[in-house]
């Protein structure tokens, strides 16, 4: 490998390791961190609205799990439970194993009027990757993949018969593990791009058609309820209700996760 090639390789590895944050320095890291500290100070002083504005600014530039978590806390303190749950859900996507996020989400949802979510159950694979970020799954897959590749390379040179026998097994197993990880990554990413949303207003009517004059076909949903969007049409979104019924919600009463 040439020197330039080595440098390019090192760049890619570093880029991957540090979560792909090499592209985001439109606003400098130090500025964002200073803003984060000011937001935390405002929160500590009970200036929750001020904290919310700063956290929102940071999150727009730098989607970070801890920023969403703190933002959720600030909304919760202001009594905006729907917004709090929305931001805890956003944080959970980015830091899925964070115990504080999981706990606060549970506390907030416990105060919901609707003690249910209108979402399809996750696939069985979610048990495998539920608590992992897609990057982590990709990493787990790359390890056997690289081991398989090195085994194949080694096979080209080694004259040691027992070693060659072992390498002949390692290579296909590593390749299978890699393919499986790619499957998991794709499922996880697919799961993350499913359009979920949270009801952010006190109460929202479920109508039979995307029309504010249409008949309400279910009891209204309340703040904090998680829904899955199945279709978007102008200012309306379609959701599925139990027993295959479908209903429409005005888009201004919900916010996508």
């Amino acid at each position: 490998m040439t020197k330039a090639g080595k440098l390019a390789f090192a760049f890619y590895v570093l880029s991957f390791t540090f979560g792909g944050n090499l592209h985001l320095y439109a606003q400098s890291q130090s500025t964002l961190e200073a803003s984060y500290r000011r937001a935390n100070a405002a929160y500590a002083d009970g200036q929750y609205q001020q904290a919310i504005e700063k956290y929102e600014q940071i999150a727009a530039s730098l989607p970070s799990g801890i920023v969403y978590y703190n933002l959720g806390n600030a909304y919760f303190r202001l009594g905006k439970r729907g917004k709090a749950i929305l931001n805890y859900e956003r944080a959970k996507r980015l830091i899925p194993r964070d115990k504080d996020t999981i706990f606060n989400l549970k506390v907030a949802k416990a105060q919901n009027i609707d003690q249910f979510d209108l979402v399809k159950p996750l696939s069985g694979f979610s048990l495998l990757y539920g608590a992992l970020h897609p990057d982590e799954i990709a990493w787990f897959g790359l390890v056997p993949y690289w081991i398989a590749a090195l085994s194949i390379v080694w096979l080209q040179f080694s004259q040691n018969r027992p070693l060659r026998r072992v390498l002949r097994y390692i290579a296909p197993v590593g390749c299978l593990a890699w393919l499986f990880s790619l499957l998991l990554v794709s499922l996880k990413v697919h799961e993350l791009i499913v359009p979920y949303a949270i009801v952010t207003v006190d109460e929202i009517a479920v109508r039979s058609t995307p029309d504010s004059g249409a008949e309400a076909i279910a009891l209204p949903l309340h703040e904090g309820t998680k829904i899955q969007i199945h279709e978007e049409r102008r200012d309306w979104v379609k959701i599925y209700l139990p027993e295959e019924n479908a209903g429409w919600l005005p888009a201004d009463g919900i916010e996508r996760i």
Binding site: H23, N70, F76, P134
Partner: peptide, 18 residues
Amino acid sequence: IRYIKPDSLKLTDQSVYP
């Protein structure tokens, strides 16, 4: 709810998928 995350944590962009 539990308290906010501290200042000392490093902010990173975690939204870009593989």
